[in-house]
């Protein structure tokens, strides 16, 4: 079963994404902060990481988490999808610059997210 790691500081958003993706044949992992995300990613080696940009805790935002994941050979192969409440171009560019593979803009439709995740992991 493929592993998906959901990283968001807001529990209800994590729960939303988890509830959405649980329909599929995936093992869902969750992390509430940047440092926790890196720790879980190194241990569990997920195939896909859904990463929120705005995260105040632990002094590490989504971009920084992504940069560190892509710099670590244990986690660099994971597909990183930035989950951002800002659809601004600068955020998308910054995501690309730190090695994110794709992005998804909030608010999102669970069905669309499901389809996108399915395509990425098939």
């Amino acid at each position: 079963m493929k592993k998906i790691l959901i990283v968001d500081d807001q529990p209800e958003i994590r729960d939303l994404v988890a509830t959405t993706l649980r329909i599929g044949p995936y093992h869902i992992l969750q992390a509430g902060s940047g440092p926790e995300a890196i720790e879980v990613a190194r241990r569990e080696r997920p195939s896909l990481i859904l990463l929120d940009v705005m995260m105040p805790e632990g002094d590490m935002d989504g971009f920084e988490v992504c940069r560190r994941l892509k710099a670590d050979e244990k986690t660099r192969d994971a597909f990183v999808m930035m989950l951002t409440a800002r659809g601004q171009k600068s955020d998308i560019e910054r995501g690309k610059a730190v090695g994110a593979n794709d992005y998804f803009v909030k608010p999102f439709s669970p069905l669309e997210l499901m389809t996108k995740v399915y395509e990425v992991l098939k």
Partner: peptide, 12 residues
Amino acid sequence: TPLTSLQGFSEI
């Protein structure tokens, strides 16, 4: 942020 929850959970 709340809109994401509203849209998401209602769609589920």
